[in-house]
Design a protein around this nucleic acid. Structure first.
Length: 413
RNA sequence: GCGACUGUAGCUCAGUAGGUUAGAGCGCUGGUUUGUGGUACCGGAGGCCGUGGGUUCGAGACCCAUCAGUCGCCCCA
């Protein structure tokens, strides 16, 4: 069976799944709008260096997960693996860096060349927000406030737990990295194979290793809070106080680390309470991203959530349109059927016309498409202008005038 | 990128120790005569058994490779 197929890890979206995703996006837009975030949609491709310069050359995303190719003018392009870098580029390109503060929300497809499995696709969709403002925790709280309310709207907040950490500023992190490196080097023989490699590339990553041996070593690892500058320390305390004031429950996790290098100070992620393998919604503060891309030093905070991961969790009911099937019994009644059908346009009814010489077959078809009502247009009906409406769940039939059809249906549920 | 398991009809799956024309349920389709469906009964279509090699007189079953899916690891939303 050599069939045409979609690219690995890239799936078609149809029917109920599409409606669920659309509904989540709608809720996301509503919450964002009401907090005065503005929409921004950037292209799904950027020049490669937009990502390679910002995400961290040693990160897995840059090293082995990007869809990068050259186009016909020999430009090196990359399908975006995340949204933040493209938006940072966009505010520079559009000269928005003078209009700080800026608050954006976005959604769209992202691409990563990974081995697909549950909650991990090669093309997936993220919804996310970015706030550019003066350094400090106000923007952190703003986006966390939005995140919490979004998740509350989706009715999944109580399944999740918010973990936060503070990585310190660039200098703090450099110092901490060295301290960690020293500590791990002394315990090299106890570390897992992967972590020995991480020790060279980015020792921070060892902190959130799930390997049992690593976890044992991490127990006595130096804590990041000891190397934080006073400013970072103080602002982290303020952020936690604010979260408490607003009853946003969280867990401080000194082992929390993010995979993309542009983060500094506050980082956070929402994971499932009973399964912290992957994040549902995650993000943090970044101070140097815009600068790295050639803009002024503007700090920001943002997060992104995986739409497919959200879809797996939510239990939203899709409002179904009432389906009405019109059954003309002769070809020359088709135009009458369309005339009636036109009245239904943009109502909460979905209508369809089925023509077959057999009423029996037509009714079978009505069952198949789960119609709620059928309207029968036979010689008798058309002549008298009184149409037979049959309620398919009760079996009841009524003769209704053309102008009263919708009104009748509204009252006959 | 590494490992485990899986791959038979549109869907969910049976196919025993390798042995004639590959099965079931659901779905699809036709019928059970007139302008009335859902249920019931009778018929029908639909499978290069993921793909490519190999072992064998003989392979859906065994072996190898490959592709895809699921689940771990890595990483991440």
């Amino acid at each position: 069976m050599t069939k045409v197929r979609s690219i690995r890890g890239m799936h078609d979206l149809l029917g109920a799944d599409y409606l669920t995703q659309k509904k989540i996006i709608k809720l996301f837009e509503n919450v964002s709008n009401s907090l005065n975030f503005k929409p921004i949609l950037t292209p799904i491709m950027e020049f490669n260096d937009i990502f390679s310069r910002t995400l961290g050359l040693s990160s897995d995303v840059v090293m082995k997960e990007m869809y990068t190719f050259t186009d016909r003018s020999n430009d090196k392009l990359t399908l975006r693996p995340e949204g933040t870098a493209g938006i940072a580029r966009a505010i520079i390109s559009n000269g928005l860096t003078q209009n700080i503060p800026l608050k954006f929300f976005y959604y769209g497809p992202m691409f990563r060349y990974e081995r697909p499995q549950k909650g991990r696709l090669r093309q997936f969709t993220q919804v996310g927000v970015e706030v550019y403002a003066k350094p400090g925790i106000e923007k952190d709280f703003e986006v966390l406030f939005l995140a919490t309310n979004f998740l509350k709207e989706l009715k999944i907040l109580d399944k999740l737990i918010l973990k936060i950490n503070n990585l310190g500023n660039f200098e703090d992190r450099k110092i901490y990295k060295n301290i960690l490196k020293k500590y791990y080097s002394q315990n090299k023989d106890k570390l897992s194979e992967e972590s020995v490699i991480r020790l060279e590339k980015n020792p921070l990553r060892i902190l959130d290793s799930k390997n049992l041996a690593d976890i044992e070593v991490n127990k006595y690892a130096p804590n990041i809070s000891e190397t934080l500058s006073d400013l970072s320390k103080q602002s982290f305390i303020e952020l936690k106080a604010m979260l408490k004031n607003f009853n946003i429950s969280f867990q401080e996790d000194p082992f929390l680390v993010r995979g993309l290098d542009y983060y500094s100070n506050t980082i956070f992620e929402f994971t499932l309470k009973d399964d912290d393998k992957f994040a549902i919604l995650a993000g943090g503060n970044y101070d140097d991203l815009v600068y790295e891309l050639g803009g002024p030093k503007i700090s920001g905070t943002g997060w992104a959530a995986g739409l497919e991961r959200l879809t797996n969790l939510v239990n939203l009911k899709n409002k179904k349109s009432k389906v009405v099937l019109m059954i003309p019994l002769e070809t020359n009644f088709l135009s009458t059927a369309y005339k009636i059908r036109e009245k239904f346009l943009c109502s909460h009814y979905a209508t369809e016309i089925y023509f077959d010489n057999s009423l029996k077959k037509s009714l079978k078809y009505a069952n198949k498409i789960a119609a709620d009502h059928v309207i029968i247009l036979g010689a008798e009906e058309v002549e008298r202008g009184l149409y037979t409406i049959k309620n398919l769940s009760t079996g009841a039939q009524n003769k209704v005038k053309e102008n009263s059809i919708i009104e009748f249906l509204n009252n006959d549920s």
